[in-house]
Structures are given as structure tokens and as C-alpha cells.
Amino acid sequence: MSAIASPRNAVVAARAAFGTSSTGQIYGVLVLVLVVTWSLILATGGNINLTNTLVRSVALGIVAVGQTFVILGGSLDLSVAYQVSVTAVVASVLMDGDPGNIWWSVLAVIALGAAIGAINGIIITAIHINAFIATLGTSLILRGALNATFDNYAGEVPDEFQPLGYSRFLGIPYSVLLLLAIVATGWWILRYTRFGHHLYAVGASEETARLSGVRSGRVLIGAHTICSITATLTGLFIISRLSAGAPWVGPDGNYDLESIAAVVLGGTALSGGRGGVLGTFAGVLILALLDNAFNQLQINTFLKDVVRGVIIIAAVAIYALRQRRDVR
């Protein structure tokens, strides 16, 4: 125990706490973005609102945690945007304005989400369809089914469900607590459970993992199930801030590509096996801080996309360069 006192072990311990050393880098970037955007906002006479920024990152943050799981496993999920919409509409219809329906409606949509995720995982692992095509396919199927059934707000969200979106506990919004709890759970699963370790192994090399006795198919199906459950939770959070669910909430939020962007911005390798949810959390916060800065500085929203594109490419290029230097 006394060894912990030495600085070297402190670094090791810090690295262990953050998962990988690249997570340290991304938090450095986060601090830099925070300082730059906040100085700009303050310099132009705006006001800083950390809670507001956090609340704005909840919807993307939750689903990005799930996306981290599938990307770590070497897969990806392009269907999360429509899963968010399916959840929003189905939950709103099931609740139908009656607070007594809340608990079983929530369980029902989580079960539905888990089923969609499991189907994604089975298509990918059992039929051997590339994850990109498989989830693009399920995304199209969900999109068609959803838009054929609903074309406007549907059902009614009871007022009793709104505290998730608006109320606070000790000054912290419930939604932020939910996001922190999900990030913590994701971190714990990846770091301390057998499933988490197997997921890294499968992502690094599916074949090696399988030959070492890891049931890679089951691991990937599990990761996809988790990812879809987080999409469900994002959908539930979104309707807690609306009076009813609408079929466009998912694609309008662009959760499919944005969540993937947040994950890789957070230092997780798109090829799998490297990264973690703490990095993703930082990636989501960076995107939210930029959003906040652009809104406060009243810069054209289209220009925001240009800057986002530059930042995502630049960040991943830096990770790639460092990776190569590490290997040498």
C-alpha cells in the first residue's frame, strides 16, 4: 500500500482511473475548449451556465455511452436515431396521460429497445452482415414502420413524468444525475465485469478472442442490447421535456452520426478495442460547450457545422498521430 505514495504509481493510478492515457488527453482538450469558449463568452458580455450546458448534453450523452460499447466491440449502430423516435412515440402512446401507466410503459419500451438491440446483434453476428449495413437496414425498417403509423405528435406524456426533464435535486437537474449515473455504470461495466473485458478483447481482435474461449457473438449481442437500451433512455428523457412523443425527435437530433462522432472525439478507436465511456463523456461535453459558445456568440448555425467537422477530424488525426508515435 505504501507504494501508492510514489509519484510514478500515482501516474499509474491516475491512468487506471481514467481507463487509458488517451482519456487524459481528451480531458486536456476538454479543459482547453472550456477555457477558450468561456473566455470568448465572457469577453463578449455573455453569461456562463454550466448546468444548462450539461442538460443540453444529456440526450446525446446517454446514447453515446451505448454507442461506445458497440464501437469498442468493433461494431457500430446507425439505427439509434430511429430507436430514439420509436421509444418517444411508443412510450407517449402507452402512457396516454395517465401517471399510473408510467412505470410499466417505461419497462415496456426498455424491453422493446433491448429486443431491437438483440436483433441488431443477432443479424450482425449470426448472419455475418457488416454492422454498417445491418443497422442501416434496421434503421430503414424502423423509419418506415414509424412514419407509416405516426405522422405527428402521438399519445400524451403525463405531467408526473416531467420532473425527469425539469426538476432538480440539490440544485442538480435529475437528467444530469441520470447521465452521470449511466456514465458511471458504463465505466464500471467496462472496467470491472467479465463482459467488459471480453468486449475489449472482441473489439481488439474478434478471432483471437474467440480462439481464447470468449463467446464473441454473445458479447456483441450484449453490447448492441446495451446500446439500444441507452437509445431508449434518451428517448424517455426527450419526452420528459415534451408533452407528447413525435416521430422526428430522433433524426432531428441526428443521434446516429453525432453519437459516433462524440465517441471517436472521446478517443475511442472506430476499429474497436481501445477507448472508454469517460472519453465519450468528454467528447459529448466538448460538442455541448461548442454549441453553447456558438449560441451565446450568435454565430451562424451553419458555420457551427463547419467548425464541428474541423474539430472532429483534427482530434482524430491527433489521436492517430500519437498512436503511431506510441507504436514506434
Binding site: I260, L270, N300, V306, I312, A317
Partner: peptide, 22 residues
Amino acid sequence: LGVPSFITTLGTMLMLNGATLW
């Protein structure tokens, strides 16, 4: 630069759409 093409082209997609609309 070793950026995965999924990310590169996602970035150029954001930049092109944003820049044109801007």
C-alpha cells in the same frame, strides 16, 4: 493523417453542408 475514412468523410460532409448553407 491516419483518420478513419468514416470520420474523415463525416467531417467533410458536415463542413460542406454547413459551408454551403452558410
